[in-house]
Design a protein around this nucleic acid. Structure first.
Lengths: 176, 176
DNA sequence: ATAAATAAACAGACCGTTCGGTACAAATTA
DNA sequence: TAATTTGTACCGAACGGTCTGTTTATTTAT
């Protein structure tokens, strides 16, 4: 997964996948129908992993919902600075292959929706708590916040400004 | 450029570039040192084109600066729905190759900065006009707005919600 | 002005390499 | 022993890039 993430799909050969993971080609093609099918499986694994991570981070009831959200995004932005990839694996794959391959398009947007569904209850909670604006419905607000986050995640690696200051600006401006 | 945009770098062969543009390989390699150099040239052309477009859209003095900004982003989001590519060409290229190729990384972030520099005066004007929050400096606010826009541009194609409603939410929440 | 010489641009067959994927024998498991 | 998994040599296709012959434009000589 790390490999797809940093190198993308077309720049990563099956040979290299096998070399780096210690598999052989025989084992690879015994387990996966094709390179594409391996990518789809990887996207789903990553999606499940992230969804679970989000769930865990947001279920800390000691903090207010708004603070939980902000802390989550801060943590994720910080995590990226320690790696050598940029952006989100799901979204990167979507931009690389989304217009070329319908399976990839549907799998990636499925995962994206899954993320939103995990986050939305906390956003709604924050709205009920009068911490976030409630003039728009929680689904749209969730998408607004998370889309912004992905924008930051994609661009912040190549700019000097800390991505977190942008996220902070947005989150505070969405406060009630 | 349209080709790189929809297909990405690795999925587009020199043969196809030549076929679709009516060039031959001889002409191509007479004009460009390599496929990579052609990409860099294309990015710069695209960057100049967009920067000029932004400049034109924002110089309409009949509207208030805030309205000019919102109209610009609306127009750009609408424009995308008529095409079959997604996201921004500069940013897509950055995610596909930014971690693998330093020339591409620097060229793309150069273009991104150019966009910000074109937009920033209008944002500053809106701040002075008391239309946008002035608690943060105009450069960071510009980056916040534009980064958000790119996030929307990248994801809105695969989601059902209109990207513009997200952009509207953000812009209005950043109002003074 | 015309012809010859030089340079630049072009066409596209072709090259070595790498790609995703297959074949099949060897090894492992049951 | 029968069935499954693994290692690896190998395949055709497609890749980026080169090479050589040819056309076209420009300069020079007469």
């Amino acid at each position: 997964m790390e490999l797809f993430w940093t190198k993308g799909y077309h720049n990563l050969g099956v040979d290299e996948i096998c070399r780096k993971t210690g598999m052989t080609k025989g084992a690879f093609y015994n387990s996966f129908k094709s390179k594409e099918q391996f990518l789809l499986t990887t996207i789903e694994n990553y999606g499940n992993f992230i969804a679970e991570y989000l769930q865990n981070q947001l279920s800390d009831n000691k903090q207010k919902p708004f603070d939980r959200l902000l802390a989550l995004y801060k943590k994720m932005l910080e995590a990226q600075t320690e790696t050598n990839h940029m952006g989100c694996f799901v979204n990167n794959t979507m931009s690389e292959l989304g217009t070329l391959n319908v399976s990839v398009a549907s799998t990636t947007s499925e995962q994206f929706d899954k993320f939103l569904n995990v986050i939305e209850p906390t956003v709604r909670e924050a709205q009920l708590n009068q911490e976030l604006i409630d003039s728009i419905d929680s689904k749209l607000l969730t998408k607004t916040i998370h889309t912004t986050f992905f924008g930051i995640l994609t661009t912040s690696k190549s700019t000097k400004t800390s991505g977190y200051s942008i996220m902070e600006t947005i989150m505070h401006s969405l406060k009630k």
